[in-house]
Each structure stands twice: as C-alpha cells, then as structure tokens.
C-alpha cells in the first residue's frame, strides 16, 4: 500500500498538471493498474470538475472553525502535503477550490484514521464526511465503471442483493488465515441498462467497445451496427464510433457485418479519421464482397465531395480499381467518379 499512498498524494498535483513528466507517467501507469487508486482518481477528477461547475461560495467561517477544531495539528500535517498550488485561476475560485480540496482530502484522511486505519479511504466515504459543508453537499458518488475484475471490501457492498443475479465460478480465498479476513471470488452476470445522451463520452465509449466485441450482441452485430447508423447518421461524428467501425470493417469475417460497418461509416458526418480512411482503402483493395468495395468507394466519394484530400494511396487504389478489368463494372465506374472529385 506504500505505493498507493504515494500515488494518492500525487493525485492533486496530477489534477493541476503540476507533476513532472516522469512522475505523471508513473502515476498514470499505477492508476491504470490499481483498481482502488483508479476509483480514487476518478473521484478526484469528478470532484474537481464538479467544483469547477459549482457556483463560487465562500466556506462559512463556522464550518471552517468546526473542521479545524476536530483535527489536531499532528493529524492535519499530512493533509498539508496534499495542498498544491493552483496556478492561473482567479483568486476567488482558487480559494474556493483549494478550500474544498483541503476539506475533501482532510475529511477523507480523518475518516480513514478514525474509522479504520488499514483501509484506504474510499472516495464515497470521503465525500460523505464533509457533506455538512454547504458547497459540496450535492457531490455524486463515484461513477460506476465497467471492469473486467474488481476487488471490493464488504463495506462497499450493499447487504441487499437485488433480484437473482447469476453467480458462477465461485472460489473461496483466504490467503492469510491470520488476518481475520476472507475472500469470495466469483463471476457475476447482471443485466445493466445504461441510459444517456448519444453524445455522452461514456455512452460513446461503451458503444465503441460493444461494436468491437465479436460476441453476444442480441440478436446480432449487424443489427447493432444498423442501430448505431440510425442513431449517429445525423449527428456530429463521434471519432471513437468511427474507429470502432473501421476495426470491424478490417477484422470481421462476417460479410453482412462488414457491409453494415462500411454502410455506417459512409453515413457518419464529419471529417474522416486516417484510421477510417485506411480501412476503407483496404476494403476497396481486397474485400471479396463487391458491396463492401462499392460502399467503401462511396465513402471515399463522400470524403472527396466534402473537400477532404484523398492521399496518394487512396488515389492510386481508385486509379487501379477504375482500370481493373476483373473488377465489377459498376465498382470501376464509381472509382472513376471518386477520382473525378479530386480538385487541384
């Protein structure tokens, strides 16, 4: 846990971009590999963002007094390590945010020491403690994150089990019989419905992840992609969705799915990413299904019509297709049409 403590101390500095490059990289690597710190970091980041959105209010003197009265100087000392300089912000906001961070971090530290010395302060607990402070009463709990594996303390688990979730592969773990704790590991299947704006980053990420996965979309990936096409056809392009579809176009064996993927790429508005363009060119070069090649050309035509530059590889591929006797005649004609859109 020594490393986790150190990393947690670095988080405020990371938040304010005050860490040097090496420390920043080290901290990020740790956060990515440690679930608990990842949650902690997410909570920090969300708190920071929320505070930025909150109206600026002074911390009431009474609250400040009460808080300081509850901690003695010895306990407060480590908290000071978490206080970081806030550059380039207006004085009022700087004060409000600094005070709030001190309160959150101090509260977390205090709660951690008072309640359970061994356990890292969970972000939700940290928020609960200073909830009496007017300025941060509406802070939300840490975001639910989809994760392949997760380690939870019993205090983070509600005693109520909702419905009858499927639990498989149960294992009892007691790595240290003398520490008074036991572990229960299992795979759980529960049905989750995520609602939100199609523009929401979390929704975009989730959809991209699902599109790239090759299994268990009901009833099929093809229909899922069709649904995405209808959803995003009239909105600003989401690069992550396009990237996911480009991967599908490159790697999917199922021709029907590739057709849907390229059809959707064709309809997505906005500038084409290089990865998407490369996938279209590869599809045009070598996809055995003529409909995929045809739609790849149509996507390139749309690119050129929108004033996007076709690079040398795209031009050469279209050139070759237009003159390839073995190619379907209509594909050749469309390749010629795409080339005619090239402007000096």
């Amino acid at each position: 846990m020594g490393e986790c403590d150190s990393m947690r101390e670095s988080m405020p500095l990371l938040l304010t971009e005050s860490l040097d490059a090496a420390s920043r990289e080290r901290t990020h690597l740790h956060i990515e590999s440690c679930d608990v710190c990842h949650d902690e970091w997410s909570a920090y980041r969300d708190t920071w963002r929320m505070m930025d959105e909150l109206s600026e209010v002074d911390v009431p003197a009474r609250v400040k007094q009460q808080f300081l009265a509850r901690i003695d100087p010895a306990q407060a000392a480590p908290v000071r390590n978490n206080v970081v300089p806030f550059h380039r912000r207006s004085a009022a906001r700087w004060l409000a945010q600094a005070a709030a961070v001190v309160i959150v971090a101090g509260g977390a530290f205090y709660a951690g020491h008072q309640v359970q010395q061994q356990r890292p302060p969970l972000p939700v607990q940290a928020f609960r403690e200073p909830a009496r402070v007017t300025g941060v009463t509406n802070i939300q709990p840490a975001k639910f994150s989809l994760a392949e594996t997760r380690v939870l303390g019993t205090d983070a688990l509600s005693p109520n089990i909702e419905g009858r979730p499927n639990i498989d592969n149960v294992q009892f773990v007691d790595s240290d019989p003398s520490d008074g704790t036991i572990g229960l590991a299992f795979d759980m299947t529960s049905h989750v419905t995520v609602t939100g704006s199609p523009k929401d980053k979390s929704m975009v990420r989730l959809l991209s992840y699902v599109l790239e996965r090759q299994d268990n979309i009901s009833p099929s990936r093809s229909q899922a992609i069709d649904w995405v096409r209808q959803m995003y056809a009239n909105q600003n392009a989401e690069p992550e969705i396009a990237t996911a579809l480009a991967k599908v176009l490159r790697s999917e064996e199922h021709e029907g799915v590739r057709i849907q993927a390229v059809d959707t790429l064709k309809t997505l508005p906005g500038k084409t990413a290089s990865s998407t363009r490369d996938a279209l060119i590869d599809a045009l070069k070598s996809d055995p299904n003529p409909a995929v090649r045809l739609k790849a050309i149509e996507a390139l035509i749309k690119m050129a019509s929108n004033g996007e530059q076709l690079d040398d590889e795209a031009v050469n591929t279209l050139r070759k297709k237009a003159g390839e006797e073995a190619e379907n005649l209509y594909v050749r004609v469309k390749a010629a049409e795409a080339l005619s859109k090239i402007r000096p």
């Binding site: 029907g256 057709i259 409909a291 995929v292």
Partner: peptide, 8 residues
C-alpha cells in the same frame, strides 16, 4: 425473385 451477388 430478388437476388444480389453482394449487398443487403
């Protein structure tokens, strides 16, 4: 009868 060698 409706048929395509490749397409939806």
């Amino acid at each position: 009868e409706v048929s395509t060698d490749g397409g939806i």
